[in-house]
Amino acid sequence: MNRHHATGIVMAFAWMVLGFLALPAFAVVPISFTDTRYLAMPDEHWSLQHWRAFLSNREWHDSIWQSLWIACVSTLGAVVAGTLCAIGCWRASSRWSERVRTAMILPMAVPTIVYALGIYRLYVDLDLVGSAIGIVFAHTVTGLPYVVLTVSASLANIDPRLEQAARGLGASVGQTLRWVIVPNVVPGILSGAIFAFIHSWDELIVVIFIGGRAFFTLPRRMWDGINDNLDPVIAVVATGMILFTLLVLSAELALRARRPRS
């Protein structure tokens, strides 16, 4: 077989895999324009009726708003805690700091449903089920690994002598952190923030367990909608979510492209 041929086959396979990965997510886009009254592809013509229904539905708006602020606040928490943790581990760089870093990644490694069950048990005792602080805290903790990972990756590229140089030139630990370390890991912090945000934005399982009656984030309202009735508005919301996520991800990509290479 000639080489050109082989490359063609590999390329075709690669595109198939890529399509298999990405395309199912986009199936909701035509469904959102369906003219039927249930979740299905457009039957005779495309219609905007479900988009109109979505735009005039307060429940969905409340959910968007709820998802948005929970994601923002828990991202903030995850960024601050995760960045400090990563920098601390980097500075200490001992056997123990390696263990701490591994422990920080646990929320990502443990199956979410197991994790959610554990949090639920704890929150029942603490009376935090259905509370804002409870959800924000859970999302902060589960968003933490993303920040720790990306900031640690950024730190790995920093010359440890930069800190020595700063201290040697008279900077206190705080000044060194503020003027030298943090500015050099900003790309890592932003990437981590974006991932932590997306994580909270589409997190479902934990919210199902601890959301109680007060918290219907966007994913949870979709889930309930699918269970109760097959309202095509769900496809509209899903399309919106995909668009929003793509937007955030491309911001992350653009950020990475701009990162100066030394």
Binding site: D159, R161, Q164, A165, V180, S262
Partner: peptide, 19 residues
């Protein structure tokens, strides 16, 4: 501590702040 000694230091790999 280092920062209170008032000593100037030059490193082999320069250690300039890239930011």
């Amino acid at each position: 501590p280092v920062e209170k000694r008032g000593i100037g230091m030059v490193f082999q790999n320069y250690a300039l702040f890239p930011n």
